[in-house]
């Protein structure tokens, strides 16, 4: 399988590469159009700030390419938010692939939402073998509300989208690459889609 990780210097790509390596999977890190277009599957990692990440994508014209992709695609953390329409972080227009907003947590609880929280209402092959209430690692200050495209929820304190599925685009707000054996299983599930 030809697996490509989108390289736009904004994400913590190394962690995803290492997680794949632990699963015995080779991946190519690339920002090249043809390489990404011809991949069997694409992973789109991300940590960081929305407007900086969008600027990095635009500098490589990836904002034009990514919405046109048709193979199974997996956005992680900021990589999920970037797939959405607009983020309150830096009032940023995102890639606009999934017609959902990205909002800042408005809560008395601590923000960022940081640490291990539970995955609930799992409804996708992405979560095959994962139990309701399994823990995943989160670190984020912005979230995507629950919608018809939500395939898993987490509460902080209100439910938000832990994961999304829209056409060929899958996405997780948590970090599967940092979520222990459960996270590895979710990555394996994506690779098996």
């Amino acid at each position: 399988m030809d697996l490509v990780i989108v390289d736009y210097k904004a994400g913590n790509v190394q962690s995803v590469l290492f997680a794949l390596e632990r699963l015995g999977v080779q991946a190519t890190l690339s920002s090249d159009f043809e390489t990404i277009q011809s991949a069997d599957k694409v992973i789109f990692p991300g940590v960081g700030e929305a407007s900086s990440a969008m600027a990095q994508l635009k500098a490589r014209n990836l904002d034009k390419l990514l919405p046109t992709l048709e193979q199974p695609f997996f956005g992680v953390c900021l990589g999920m938010q970037l797939l959405c329409q607009h983020s309150e972080e830096g009032d940023t227009d995102m890639l606009g692939i999934i017609p959902l907003p990205v909002k800042r947590f408005q809560t008395e609880l601590k923000v960022p939402h940081m640490g291990w929280n539970q995955l609930e209402k799992l409804q996708s092959p992405l979560f095959g073998g994962i139990a309701e209430g399994e823990y995943a690692y989160y670190v984020h200050s912005y979230y995507v509300p629950v919608s018809e495209h939500t395939i898993a929820q987490t509460s902080y304190p209100e439910p938000f989208s832990a994961a999304l599925h829209y056409k060929n685009f899958y996405a997780a707000q948590f970090h599967p690459e940092k979520s222990g054996p459960a996270g590895s299983q979710i990555i394996k599930n994506f690779l098996a889609l």
Partner: peptide, 9 residues
Amino acid sequence: LAKRFGSQC
């Protein structure tokens, strides 16, 4: 650092 990488890290 927060501007470049996000507060979360």
